[in-house]
Amino acid sequence: MTDGDYDYLIKLLALGDSGVGKTTFLYRYTDNKFNPKFITTVGIDFREKRVVYSTNSPNGTTGKAFKVHLQLWDTAGQERFRSLTTAFFRDAMGFLLMFDLTSQQSFLNVRNWMSQLQANAYCENPDIVLVGNKADLADQREVQEKQAKELADKYGIPYFETSAATGAQVDKAVVTLLDLVMKRMEQCVEKPTADAQNTDAASKLTAAPAAEKKCAC
């Protein structure tokens, strides 16, 4: 893990209310283990994981595989660390916005977190995945899937119900976010080319999706 033998360094960040399970979620993702104890994160922490990411070329076949080094920032949900944690928003390329499915309040706060992100992330509409955690605690559930899904749709972001305890959907959520970031990265580099020659008929095809894409550049 300590060598520099990777193709990309991607920095993701988990945020959300205190106690929604950001740390355990990341621990599950990186080490595939579960720690049921609640240990409040002091300010900020991060974990790392090396993954292989393969692109899909247009004709459907699997393209090149890249080694991606993930730096997963874990932030304290506690209010008193807020100024510190938001300072880290601008260094992250993608975000795991988490709430607790057994806590209506944590879900309501998603909107606040969202505006925090929009104000402090590297651009106004960064790549975000909404994550409802603790899906295993079905009997204590306070947030319905439909509710959360609607909110995610409103923001135009993917939604996953995960469980750090069982590991369900944890990988899926992170991989989806990684995918979004990698796509944006390509767009950001491709676009200047498309702008440069919009007289060309062929480039119009590439310019069209560029107009609706999320990148604010």
Binding site: W113, S115, Q116, Q118
Partner: peptide, 15 residues
Amino acid sequence: RSPTPQSEKSVGGRS
């Protein structure tokens, strides 16, 4: 401190 994330001036697009 206020206990929720401050919804500062919301900027841009979606918000």
